[in-house]
């Protein structure tokens, strides 16, 4: 097997084993850290599908995290305080359905417009649509506007309880593994080949008779839906949601996770999120000015470490 495959298996095993160990040795804090890591990793994996494999640089991906989180927050809010009976619910299945459904719909509507543009227009228009959702939630007083919304009750699921940190982690971890396997299946399928072909040379694929626009739009919708699911998990994890979680700098952070780990690789986005979360945690415990070294690190990675961390793991022999 290739070194990258080994690295993927080892890292995912570590993610499966370490948090329970932390829990049983009384370090619950690290379980929280790992949960956040794994949830953001799902979002990064979803972004990697379009950014890494599809070559679509979406700068508005945090919007889906927000949509997913509010898809939990709003039904819970109505169920707790009354009103809007049609969507009031504590049910986890309903939350996930709304999170994934609305995210997919938003991705379909905005993607249809965004994908008509290319290059830097695409980057900026995806960012602008992300900001649109951000300002939408900032202006809705009902859901707390920029003060955010407290989720009083976590989503109710059969068999498991999300109030238990370890069970929440387990759900997030399984979701991450499924997301990675989904992306792998997609990428290795005929659909994925067209998608990657269009990244390299769109004209060639068009000449061969492929409607690359539809392929890209489909990938864009899948990615958005997946990220919306991560948002629903994040809402359940933080139990407090605010428009801040979908601002454009959050989208930038997601992009950074993908690039830091290595785009268009399986483990890259997960590794990137892990390093990102750990750096954030360590630096912010040292100084309140942690954004300064963090920003310098980001610039350093962009300028000097091409191919990300996976590029380092890959070594010379592998292709």
């Amino acid at each position: 097997m290739k070194r990258t495959t080994w690295a993927t298996i080892l890292f995912m095993l570590a993610l499966a084993i370490l948090p329970p160990v932390f829990m049983w040795t009384g370090n619950a804090f690290y379980v929280d850290l790992a949960t956040r890591l794994v949830i953001l990793a799902i979002a990064a994996v979803s972004l990697n599908l379009i950014l890494g494999f599809g070559g679509m640089v979406s700068f508005g991906h945090a919007a889906y995290i927000g949509i997913g989180a509010y898809a939990v927050g709003i039904p819970v809010y109505y169920e707790t305080y009354g009103g809007a009976d049609a969507i009031a619910s504590y049910g986890g299945a309903f939350h996930i359905l709304v999170a994934v459904g609305v995210s997919a719909l938003f991705a379909l509507l905005t993607g249809a417009i965004c994908l008509r543009t290319k290059g830097v227009y695409f980057i900026m228009i995806t960012m602008a649509f992300g900001q649109m959702i951000y300002y939408l939630f900032i202006s809705i007083e009902e859901y707390g506007a920029d003060d955010g919304l407290v989720i009083d009750t976590r989503s109710e699921l059969p068999l498991v309880s999300l109030d238990d940190p370890l069970q929440l982690y387990a759900i997030a971890y399984v979701a991450l593994v499924i997301a990675m396997l989904m992306v792998r299946t997609i990428v290795n399928s005929r659909f994925g080949m067209v998608l990657q072909g269009a990244r390299g040379n769109n004209e060639r694929l068009v000449t061969l008779g492929y409607n690359t626009y539809l392929y890209r739009l489909t990938a864009y919708v899948i990615s958005g839906a997946m990220c919306g699911f991560a948002g629903a998990l994040l809402g359940n994890f933080t139990t407090f949601i605010s428009p801040d979680m979908m601002g454009w700098s959050r989208s930038g952070e997601l992009m950074f996770m993908v690039i830091l780990g290595g785009s268009a690789t399986m483990l890259g986005p997960v590794l990137g999120s892990a390093v990102f979360i750990l750096m954030e945690e360590i630096l912010s415990s040292i100084t309140i000015y942690w954004h300064l070294p963090f920003g310098l690190m980001l610039m350093g990675v962009v300028l000097f470490a091409r191919g990300g961390l996976m590029g380092l793991i890959k070594g010379k022999g592998d292709k």
């Binding site: 950014l51 640089v57 700068f59 290059g119 830097v120 980057i123 700098s249 930038g252 992009m255 950074f256 690039i259 954004h291 300064l292 963090f294 920003g295 310098l296 690190m297 980001l298 610039m299 990675v301 962009v302 300028l303």
Partner: peptide, 16 residues
């Protein structure tokens, strides 16, 4: 570099 690197590099610059 490509536009993605511009975006990420200047994103780091914003933080700095």
């Amino acid at each position: 570099r490509n536009h993605l690197d511009h975006v990420l590099g200047t994103f780091g610059l914003i933080l700095v």
